[in-house]
Nucleic acid binder design. Structure first.
Length: 349
DNA sequence: AATACGGGGCA
DNA sequence: TGCCCAGTATT
């Protein structure tokens, strides 16, 4: 039996029941694919369910505020996905009359939809013969065909897309595409693949050559950058003993775009209390300070793919009634990075 | 052709 | 700790 035939057989026997598997509605498939970019099924599933509940149709999503979309996305990371998701929903509603494009080429023009996602949507929803090439597919093909071209090189991207197109089942592309990804996730996994009882184990090149552990080949990623974040958190208590603080939206380029955070003083190295006292006015209005409190004695190391953030939180108690202050209740409604959400959760007056 | 972009799970 | 995850956009 052919490679694709065995993948299809395996899939029909081993497919998981997932919330987006009972539909071929482009809205549902699109949403699931965006959520699952660089994200495990286990992590993305609850987000998918909450999105579908909050926004049953692309129209509901298009009519939402970006703030609401980001809040629902909070904790999932790669927030450009959420911003592009919202932008694309508006385009589908306003320029496509609420109907998604029904082919790979047009889907590719939408924000946040690249080769993989356009292939996934066009094949799953419209049976277009476009092979998906995600992390699972790279691994399965590299091992089965014994390919050692780096999967993240320009040559590798082209080579594997061509190979994927060559070996796919064009007649059953909907199941085949999901099948090869599922096979990569469950059977041909990155660590400890289940080669012993694999339906492809008599023809897998990597298994025959003992190269399963070495494939796929991936170029080294760049080193991480260390940054030092000092969050300066004003706390104001009004005459009724309600507490207020201040929060700002991140603008411009870089991480956490359009999410919210406390006034931030970034430094070249970790700062001491006297330096905070000396410099806090760089990020805070000139307020009368009652007391400085060091919330965490040792910096919290918040690790991202490309940055290690050394975060310290400084509480500034004040008697000055400042502008734009918000209550501690309202604070919880803002979309914030996990680093900030964890602080808010832990913070007590 | 490289790099930026999150957060979590696993050996 | 390092690697990986149903990748895309920007430089």
């Amino acid at each position: 039996m052919s490679f694709s035939g065995k993948i299809l057989d395996w899939y029909h026997q081993n497919k998981r029941t997932l919330p987006w598997r009972n539909t071929i509605d482009p809205y549902n498939i699109w949403l699931s694919e965006i959520i699952l970019q660089q994200t495990r099924v286990a992590q993305g599933t609850p987000y998918y369910l909450r999105f579908i509940e909050s926004f049953p149709t692309v129209g509901h999503l298009a009519n939402a505020d970006e703030e609401e979309v980001l809040k629902l996305w909070q904790g999932l990371g790669y927030y450009s996905r959420a911003r592009n998701l919202h932008a694309t929903a508006k385009i589908v509603v306003n320029e496509y009359k609420g109907v998604f494009p029904d082919n790979y080429k047009e889907l590719l023009n939408l924000k946040g939809i690249g080769d993989y996602t356009a292939s996934a949507i066009s094949s799953i929803c419209f049976n277009e013969a476009q092979a998906v090439v995600d992390g699972n597919v790279y691994r399965v093909l590299a091992r089965y065909y014994g390919v050692d071209i780096p999967i993240n090189s320009t040559e590798g991207v082209k080579y594997f897309k061509t190979l994927a197109q060559k070996v796919m089942d064009t007649e059953q592309i909907r199941d085949y595409n999901q099948g090869i990804m599922e096979f990569g996730a469950i059977q041909c996994s990155p660590k400890k693949p289940l080669c012993l009882h694999c339906p492809l184990n008599n023809s897998c090149v990597a298994l025959q050559k003992g190269l399963v552990e070495q494939l796929p080949v991936k170029l080294k990623k760049t080193k991480v950058r260390d940054r030092y974040f000092n969050y300066i958190i004003p706390i104001y208590m009004d005459p009724k003993e309600n507490y207020f603080t201040k929060i700002e939206q991140r603008i411009g380029k870089g991480i956490w775009q359009n999410l919210w955070q406390f006034p931030l003083l970034e430094s070249k190295k970790e700062l001491e209390l006297d330096e905070i006292i000396f410099r806090y006015k760089e990020v805070l209005d000139d307020i009368e300070v009652n007391e400085f409190l060091e919330f965490n004695e040792s910096a919290i190391i918040h690790k991202l793919s490309h940055q290690h953030l050394h975060a310290k939180f400084w509480i500034v108690k004040t008697n000055s009634d400042f502008a734009d202050k918000i209550s501690m209740e309202k604070l919880k409604q803002f979309p914030v990075p996990v680093l900030i959400a964890d602080f808010i959760k832990a913070f007590k007056i």
